[in-house]
Each structure stands twice: as structure tokens, then as C-alpha cells.
């Protein structure tokens, strides 16, 4: 199996900050808004370069979402920045009416998604944001897996005239995808070729899926890893092509099982190619304080959990 270089570690939110700066340089219509979390969102570089194109909104996320929607009227491409919790649940109705229904070209950029926010605990660890955003008509949902992919996604969405929810995180994680590949919204990436099980992963769980594949290889199981960065619209062709070959699937995400990527995959499989599926996701519970590593272990989002799920899926296929 192909080896991936995990030696460099960087946070996806740093990829966002870098991508935002470059998007701003490439397109003078890109503007940014933030709700009192400039440092956390890594927006400093953009603000330094383009102070007149940045709007500090204070701790008032509803107004930030509405202001962003208004900025599109006049031709701007607003990127809003705050934690994923305050980017979605707190402002769902504002997003629904003023952005999604109104079809406004706003990029909702959400950091600190999921358990890996860590010690702040469950109030801030949103695990329901993908569910909320993918339920909205007109909304594209992107959850990149590392620094490079987040940077590329941040730049790509500027040229994509549609509301976008871009989800990323706080901790340093392996940076292993190409820094130069074209980021195609809606296109899945096949990271490894395998024959026994498809592991379909998004966000921070992609690196863990790769680690799991190494372990599975030692056990004689060949895993095909599909990196879904765009959860909606879903690359159903890539999913079906892989599962038709492997005949079983594990989905892995730092999100609730309810409403997450796994459910989107299930819906595709149920309709077009029923197959055994195991879910690596948070199972209808809130998180808690702890280090990211401790939390990923406790809530069964870690490498061994993906290995176990793959073994189960393969066993079900044979049963």
C-alpha cells in the first residue's frame, strides 16, 4: 500500500488563513467578516493585507451572517469566520433565509469543529453542523482533511458562485495531501486502491483512515480510502464505483452519526447498491472536556475504531 508522509503537522485552520489571504490576492471581491475570533480563525494575514476589506462584527453572529448576505448585493464574496458552533446552530435561521433561500454567495467558514476543539468542552464541540448545513437547499458542504486541502478549498470556493459551508478544525494534524493539485468541489479523492473494504472518510478522520489501512494491510485486508471533502454535493459515482468493487464500507467522520457523511453514503447505497456499512462517528451523545487525542479515543473516532469497523464490515460481507 502507498505510504503517506505524516512528518509535517499543521492545523486545518492555518490552511484556511493562508487560503483566505491568497483568495484575497486573487480576487478583489473577496471580503472577510469575523465575530471576535480573528486569532483562532487565523485571519490576521488577510486583515493586515486588506484592512478595508475586513469587518469585525463582535460577538454578534446573527448580524454577521446578515451583513455577509448584504455584502453580496454589490458583488462581494464574503467569508465569515467563527467557531463551527456559532457558524451554524446559533444562526441557522439567518443562514436559511438570508443566504440559502436567498441564494447569496456567502462562504461560511467554521473552525474548531468537532471533538478536537478539546478542553472547552461540549458547549463548543459542535457535532451536528454537517447535519444542519447539508439539510439546506442551495448549500454546499465542504470538510477538508488537512492544511493543504483546506487552503485549496478556501481558494476554490471564491470562484464557485454558491453558498458554501467550509468546516475545519483546531489541532495540528498530518499535512499529507498535495499542495498543488486542483481542488475540484464535489469530486472525491481516491487515496489508496484496495479490494476488500472502502473506507470513506472526511476531515480529521482521513489521516486516521490511512493509519487504519496500514494496520489492516498487516492483517491481510486491502482497504480503499476515499477522501470525501465535499459532503454535499456528494460524489456518488466515486462512492458507488468503490463499493461495487469492495462490497462493504466504513464511513468515518468527526460528527454525529445522525445526519453526517455516513448517512449520506447510506442513502446512496440503499438506493443504488445496498452493502454492509459500519459507522465511525459520535453516537448520539455530547462531548466533554479533554485533550483532542483523549476525546477521539473515548468517543471511538480513533484509528483502532476504524480498524475494528473495517473488520466488522468485511465479516458481514462474508456472512
Amino acid at each position: 500500500m502507498q505510504k503517506f508522509d505524516f512528518s509535517q503537522k499543521k492545523a486545518t485552520r492555518d490552511g484556511f488563513g493562508q487560503g483566505l489571504l491568497e483568495a484575497g490576492k486573487n480576487n478583489d471581491k473577496v471580503v472577510a467578516l469575523c465575530a471576535d475570533l480573528i486569532g483562532s480563525l487565523k485571519m490576521d494575514a488577510f486583515i493586515k493585507e486588506f484592512p478595508e476589506r475586513f469587518f469585525q462584527c463582535g460577538v454578534a453572529e446573527a448580524n454577521m451572517i446578515g451583513t455577509a448576505a448584504g455584502l453580496t448585493i454589490g458583488g462581494y464574496i464574503p467569508y465569515t469566520g467563527t467557531f463551527a458552533n456559532f457558524s451554524t446552530g446559533r444562526v441557522f435561521d439567518q443562514i436559511r433565509q438570508s443566504i440559502a433561500y436567498a441564494g447569496k454567495n456567502v462562504k461560511i467558514c467554521a473552525s474548531h469543529a468537532g471533538l478536537t476543539l478539546g478542553e472547552d468542552g461540549a458547549t463548543h464541540q459542535i457535532l451536528e453542523d454537517i447535519a444542519m448545513m447539508k439539510a439546506l437547499p442551495n448549500m454546499t458542504v465542504i470538510n477538508p482533511c488537512d492544511f493543504n486541502q483546506t487552503r485549496l478549498a478556501t481558494m476554490a470556493i471564491a470562484d464557485y458562485p454558491s453558498p458554501v459551508y467550509l468546516r475545519f478544525g483546531r489541532p495540528s494534524v498530518p499535512n499529507f495531501t498535495s499542495a498543488t493539485d486542483e481542488f475540484v468541489i464535489g469530486k472525491a479523492l481516491q487515496l489508496t486502491v484496495g479490494t476488500d473494504v472502502s473506507i470513506i472518510a472526511t476531515g480529521h478522520l482521513v489521516a486516521k483512515a490511512i493509519e487504519a489501512a496500514y494496520v489492516l494491510e498487516e492483517k491481510g485486508i486491502s482497504a480503499e480510502i476515499i477522501n470525501i471533502h465535499t459532503i454535499k454535493p456528494l460524489d456518488t459515482e466515486a462512492v458507488l464505483a468503490s463499493v461495487r468493487k469492495t462490497k462493504c464500507v466504513v464511513t468515518a467522520e468527526e460528527h454525529q452519526k445522525n445526519g453526517g457523511l455516513g448517512e449520506s453514503i447510506s442513502a446512496v447505497l440503499a438506493q443504488y447498491h445496498p452493502a454492509p456499512q459500519e459507522f465511525v462517528a459520535v453516537n448520539d451523545t455530547f462531548g466533554e472536556s479533554g485533550t483532542p487525542d483523549e476525546l477521539m479515543k473515548k468517543y471511538h473516532l480513533d484509528t483502532p475504531d476504524i480498524v475494528d469497523a473495517a473488520l466488522k464490515a468485511v465479516a458481514r460481507k462474508k456472512a
Partner: peptide
């Protein structure tokens, strides 16, 4: 019509954004 409205309380924020866009555009 430039914005959906109905769920209340959202229009002033939208207007702020549109007004800022006018300033950026020297309109």
C-alpha cells in the same frame, strides 16, 4: 426584490452589508 424576508429581524443586518458594499464600490 433583493432579499428574502419573513422570518423577522434580519433586514437591518442585510442592509448594513449592502451599505458597506456601496462604500467599497464608491457608490
Amino acid at each position: 426584490v433583493r432579499m428574502a424576508s419573513g422570518s423577522l429581524g434580519q433586514g437591518l443586518s442585510v442592509a448594513c452589508g449592502a451599505a458597506l458594499a456601496k462604500k467599497l464600490n464608491h457608490d
